[in-house]
């Protein structure tokens, strides 16, 4: 019984079905262990986790500079900014908006820097459903290559106070 004391020499190697099951389970765990690094190198959607420490004010200054040199228009009062293909793009999250709206070219690769000015936020791209964490004090670099043109929603999916559910923006991808 599980609630009674076992016999004195209870230590014995697994036998029969138990032994087979443990072997199968262990083999599956080995497969899983190898699968994750395999997909990291082989898969097409991965994050390297590249990030740098940055003071929120410095990150905002970089974003303003980026907006100043690359602004191509405005959408609902928010600047629309087109980074140079292959270049850096900046996106800052704050309560409760993203700044600026990015306009990207299909099949071009960008280094997208995201950070926060205040609380923790979420970078959730819909309907692609790709999600990353945004932390204040960290420049999170996502190397991205949009492959389908269109208009995407960007929503915050980390609770950031009572306006959290209104925090949304757009990312535009054109041919």
């Amino acid at each position: 019984m599980s609630i009674h004391f076992p016999e004195t020499n209870w230590f014995k190697a697994p036998t029969g079905g138990e032994r087979v099951w443990i072997g199968l389970a262990l083999a599956w765990c080995v497969v899983l262990t190898l699968a994750m690094p395999y997909w990291h190198f082989k898969g097409k959607q991965n994050s390297t986790g590249e990030s740098y420490r940055v003071a929120p004010a410095d990150f905002m200054a970089r974003t303003e500079k980026f907006v100043g040199t690359n602004k191509v228009g405005e959408l609902k009062g928010v600047p629309v900014v087109q980074p140079a293909p292959g270049g850096d793009a900046y996106l800052v999250a704050m309560m409760w908006k993203f700044y600026p709206v990015l306009k990207l070219k299909k099949d071009q690769t960008y280094r997208l820097h995201v950070s926060s000015l205040d609380l923790q936020h979420g970078f959730s791209l819909q309907p692609m459903n790709m999600n990353f964490q945004i932390l204040p004090g960290y420049d999170h670099v996502l190397t991205i290559t949009p492959t389908i043109s269109g208009e995407y929603s960007l929503i915050c999916n980390e609770f950031c106070g009572f306006g959290h559910h209104t925090m949304a923006s757009k990312i535009l991808v054109e041919d």
């Binding site: 609902k76 908006k97 959730s124 819909q126 309907p127 459903n129 559910h165 209104t166 949304a168």
Partner: peptide
């Protein structure tokens, strides 16, 4: 799996600057 966030009050994003629609 359709992208609906956890810990979120409003799927409709009422009052948001930009409209967001889910499937």
């Amino acid at each position: 799996s359709y992208g609906v966030p956890r810990r979120h009050w409003d799927l409709e994003f009422t009052g948001s600057q930009f409209a967001v629609g889910f499937d």
